[in-house]
Amino acid sequence: MPRQNPRVQYTRDALRCALLELLLEKPVKHITVTDVCARAGINRSTFYLHYKDVYDLLEQMENDLIDEMGRTFSTQPSASLQGHIEAMLCVVQARRPLCLAILSEHGNPQFVKQLGRLTREGFLQHWRSLFPQAPERLLELVYAFSTSGASAVIEQWLLADCNEPPEQIAHLLSLFAASCLNSCKTMLDS
């Protein structure tokens, strides 16, 4: 991959940081290109060399994060489910400011759903192997419950400056999912 011009990288980084700061203050629909440029100390015409509008900038940032998380699955295809969760949490921790902004009250609620679509099939496939008799609908409900709870746990972890190591949070999330699945198995067996 060719190396990017340092000035271009600096400009993009400054614009991205400015948007992240602004997202913690107000919703994206109230953030203008002028706001981003003023915060970044970048000229508006320079902004438009890189992005169409504020939504394009945010979408590119989110897509980069999704791509990075997706690579954790493709680079570790044989990892355990907990291993995948831990790898994703390492990405979340490394990209903490972006994740905090996205998960904030002014962030993009669709992002969590997009991330859920990324992980969905891997989780369901793993659970099908553990509980082959479980109805598909039940697994879907457990997944919905687990991802909602995981989002809340991850948000709290981010807000607490990621005090616990990713492997500890991954273990906790795996235990929550396993507990839920074991309860469902008990229900099916009775």
Rank of each mutant, 00 (worst) to 15 (best):
S80W: 04
G116R: 02
L98Y: 00
K52Q: 02
D161F: 07
E62W: 06
R71H: 08
Q110N: 11
L89I: 09
T72H: 04
F176P: 00
A87Y: 02
R120M: 09
T32S: 14
G83F: 00
F73R: 13
N43D: 09
A14W: 08
V142M: 04
L15A: 04
E105F: 05
E155N: 13
L181F: 04
A94L: 03
E164M: 14
Q114K: 13
Q156T: 07
M187G: 13
D53I: 07
Y51W: 02
L181E: 08
W127Y: 14
E155H: 13
A160Q: 14
V112A: 11
V112G: 10
H30T: 13
H30Y: 12
I102R: 00
H30L: 13
M61H: 00
G122M: 08
S148K: 12
L22N: 03
L181S: 07
V36E: 01
A144T: 05
T72R: 09
K52M: 03
D189T: 12
C180T: 10
A134H: 08
L158Q: 07
R3E: 09
E86S: 06
K26D: 06
L124Q: 07
R96T: 14
R95K: 15
D13R: 02
S129Q: 15
P77Q: 09
S45E: 12
Q110A: 11
N5R: 11
R96G: 11
P77V: 10
T75F: 05
R44D: 11
Q125T: 15
L57S: 07
T11A: 01
V153Q: 03
V54Q: 00
V91G: 01
K113F: 13
P27D: 10
L173P: 02
V8S: 08
I102S: 02
L57D: 01
E59P: 03
N163K: 15
P2Y: 14
R12A: 09
C184Q: 01
C184Y: 05
K26G: 05
S183T: 07
L141P: 05
P2C: 12
L15I: 04
L138M: 14
N108E: 05
V91P: 00
Q60H: 12
P6V: 13
I154A: 09
P97D: 00
E121M: 12
A18Q: 04
M88E: 12
L89P: 05
R3I: 12
V28W: 00
V91E: 06
R44K: 15
G83S: 07
R137M: 12
Q60E: 10
I102V: 15
V8C: 00
S183N: 08
F176D: 07
P132H: 07
L19K: 06
A152W: 06
Q9W: 04
S183R: 08
A40E: 01
L15P: 02
F123H: 06
L65H: 05
F131I: 03
A177L: 15
P97C: 02
S146D: 02
I31C: 05
Q4Y: 07
